[in-house]
Design a protein around this nucleic acid. Structure first.
Lengths: 161, 161
DNA sequence: GTCTTTTATGAGAATAGATCTCAACTATAT
DNA sequence: ATATAGTTGAGATCTATTCTCATAAAAGAC
């Protein structure tokens, strides 16, 4: 699967934060009543460095590689906590796979493109799509959740190959 | 993929309105080089009766209940074949769950709403969404596949409860 | 019909991601 | 430092799906 993050239509990241995402996240966790454990810290640091979404297995492997091993259970636990507080977003990329993406400051509402060949994940925003979904949720007998939309296809590289 | 799989010929299944979907599907499978086995026939018949999408497990259980037991492997195998030929559509409803929906004649392009509480699956069409996606695929570095879009939320019943 | 060849099928093992259990560990308040 | 309550790791467990392979059964040949 892919690594790296050649973002082509990036979300306006509204950056220039004085404290790192990891620090903010740690504070938010404290505020939510969680203590500061080793597993949490290691995971937060890793996520903060990554610019693209990681799967639980990738997180586990990456931490193992840098000799800060964290158990699988902890990865899932921490990701659940972070999602609950809104610090990471689950992205279901299909085939039962989930990636976790740090939510950084700003409005940041966006959706994702998944390349079904190489697994690459691209965030994007689109007002037209947003409008369409808003109208939909008025018209339909379903309260649309905040969950993002995942569009599948073939990325440039894979489409041409 | 299966080992000695016959060559798949393109979908030219002009929907003949008079024959059942099961019959059409059986013909299409024959045309694609598959033989007619008991498992396939049973699955086709079941799918033809259902109006909503079924999961592999539901298919297995339903066939067991009507004493036409079919092995799990066969369910997945047949669903793969049918999807390949375009006779059923996979609908990934999240949490690693997949449902299979018979594709009946006509344009029939539609998307799905999934209630994350009760699992209900609701098809819908929306021109606005269609337009938004079309524009997106022009603008974005990804060739959007035919795969449908799944919108998550809470259905009326679950939202009020 | 009978034979032959090739495909279909079933039973269960194997995978993979995710979840659960619980004893040991440790952060925090006192 | 101690008590207490939240954290963590190791591995069992679960679930959906895929794989293996021996056997059953189509389709075509004779």
């Amino acid at each position: 699967m892919s690594r790296g993050a050649p973002t082509i239509s990036p979300v306006s990241t509204m950056p220039t934060e004085k404290s790192s995402w990891a620090a903010q996240a740690a504070d938010a966790l404290s505020a939510a009543g969680y203590r500061r454990g080793g597993a949490r810290r290691a995971i937060l640091e890793l996520l903060d460095e990554q610019s693209c979404a990681l799967s639980a297995v990738e997180i586990e492997d990456a931490l193992l590689a840098r000799k800060r091993e964290v158990s699988r259970a902890s990865v899932y636990r921490v990701m659940d906590e972070l999602e609950e507080i809104g610090l990471v977003q689950r992205v279901e990329i299909g085939q039962g796979m989930v990636r976790y993406e740090p939510v950084r400051g700003g409005p940041g509402h966006h959706h994702h493109l998944v390349c079904d060949h190489c697994g690459r994940l691209e965030p994007f925003t689109d007002d037209g799509l947003e409008r369409a979904i808003r109208r939909l949720s008025d018209r339909l007998p379903l309260r649309v959740s905040e969950h993002e939309i995942v569009i599948h296809g073939a990325c440039e590289t894979c489409a041409s190959g």
